[in-house]
Structures are given as structure tokens and as C-alpha cells.
Amino acid sequence: MSARYYWGLHLGLIALLFAGHFVLPAYQHGNVARIMVLAVYAMGYNIAFGYTGLLSLGHAMFFGAGMYGMGLLSYHFDAGALPAMAAGIVAGAMLSLVVGLLALRTAGVSFMIVTLMFSQALAMTLVYFRDITRGDEGFVIPSATRRLWGMDLSDEAHRYLIAWGLFSIVLIFTLWLVRHRWGRVFVALRENEERASLLGYDAFRTKLGALVISGTISALSGAAYALLFGYAGATFAGVQYSIFPLLWVLLGGAGTVLGPFVGALFMFYLIDLSSGVTDAYMLIAGVALVLLTLFLPQGLVGEVKRRLWRDLP
């Protein structure tokens, strides 16, 4: 199908979410704002995992780098929203560059364990230097930072619109990237690294590029999460937040532009509903992971792509 259809589909989702701002009831309005910020994280993760085939178990370190890069500058130096956000994004970009240079020397299972371990080391470091980071408790982002162009970011309406803006930018960027020559090389590496290398593509540099883009978008999401919802804590750098984007992307469909949002949306509501019933809401995440690997390895959007719309990006 022609490009007009999938641009229509993706821009349609963006328009739908914008309409949501005016029609959603207060509670769902807050939830969808949160889901859009988390979907940015999932889209970042998807560039590494879904498109390039880099299964990382440590993306929480990039999310955490963004969150703490932004939060610490704000907490200790009363920085404004834009410089603080920039600090978070730069922190994530630099961390993903360093981690990529080291971890991409490995592949497959080793890559999973190395990223897991780097991420664990960062999470423990955040807890260890409690004088600077407030350790396990975390800290509230000062209200001085949570203002942008005269808007109060703790206000529900502003929060939703900023989340929507970020989500739209990253969605369109992803759609552009995966249609671009670079994105196609990512997929070529995922499908057959040896063949892509033989054709003359530099596998290491391409994967490094993919990981840095992925880590930077994840950091953007972490920084935005702290800015919009006003809190930074070490939990967000923990293992659980490395597993979440994997779960969202698997559920929605790895290697599809819409998959991460669909996965984050479904999983958020599944966990939200079950946490009303029990404290053990992560049980849902566990069951979903097992069932997905067993019965739906392509994910929801991936199934649509496989059955109905083969060239959906």
C-alpha cells in the first residue's frame, strides 16, 4: 500500500490523541499523558530491539540517566526546564555512547547480560551516593524547574499537551528514520549481520548509531517523566524499568512504529486494573511475558502486519 495510507494511519493516531485532550475524563486524561511519555521510552527501546535486533536488558540506565541528568541539575542548581531537559538528554546520549562502545563488542546473550549488569551498577550507584541523589527515597523536582514559557507543568492540561507534543515528534521521527536508508540498514543487520557486513555496511558503527539514538530517546522520556510528573527515584533505574519497555514492545509488536504505543497502552491498563485487586500486579507482567513469547512473538501490531498489511513500517 502506498505511503499515503501509513502516513494517514500514524497522523490519525496523533490527531486522535490530540482530540483525547478535550474529551477524556480527568482520570483517563492523566493516564494517557503518562502512557504517551512511557510510549516515547518504548519507541526508543524499539529502535534498538525491534529494528536493529539489539536485545538490551538495561535500558533503564538510559531512562534513569535522563531522569537524573535533568533532576539533579534542577534539584541542586535550580536550573530552568529547558537546560535541565538538555542535561538529561546529553547524559543519556553520552552514557549510551560509552555503553555501546563497550557492550557492542558482545552479541546475543552476552549483550543482554552486559547491559543488565551496567544498568544494575548505575542503579546501585544512585542508591550509594545518597548525599547527592537522596538514595532510595528519590526527590521531588523543584517547582521552579517545572515552568516553561509561563506554563505551569504540574497543571494537568499543560502536562498532557507537552506529553502529546513529545510523543508526536518521536513517532514522526521514528517513522522517518525507519523508512530512511539508515533504518533499512538497521533492519538488514537484524536479519543477517554477516550479509550486511559483506555488502559493505559497517556493522559496529551502525549498531552504535542505533543504540545512541535509542538511548537518547529513552533519556528524553526519563527526563520528561521527571519534569511532568515531578519526581525522580532510583526505582526508575532498576531492573523493572528495563523489563517494561521490552514487555511493551513485545506486546505491541517489535519492529513496528505503532507497536510500542499499543503495547504501553494495553500493559498500562492491565497493570492499572490488576493493581486495584492485588499488590502483586507484576504477576500480570510475568504472565504476559511468558504468553507472548509462547503464542504471540510478533505482538499485536506485528500480527496485523503479518496478516493484513505487509509493508506497514
Binding site: 536485545l55 536488558l57 546475543g108 546473550v109 543482554m112 523489563i243 521490552l246 513485545l250 492485588t278 499488590d279 502483586a280 500486579y281 507484576m282 504477576l283 507482567a285 510475568g286 504472565v287 504476559a288 511475558l289 511468558v290 504468553l291 507472548l292 513469547t293 509462547l294 512473538p297
Partner: peptide, 20 residues
Amino acid sequence: ERTIVATIGLLYILQQATLM
């Protein structure tokens, strides 16, 4: 790789079932 993902799921199932 799929086994690792599935055992992560198993991890949460066992841990959370114990919590319950």
C-alpha cells in the same frame, strides 16, 4: 534470547505468586 525473556516472565510469576 526467547528463553531469557520467558524466564524473566517466570521470575515475576514465581516472585509475585509468593507475595500473594
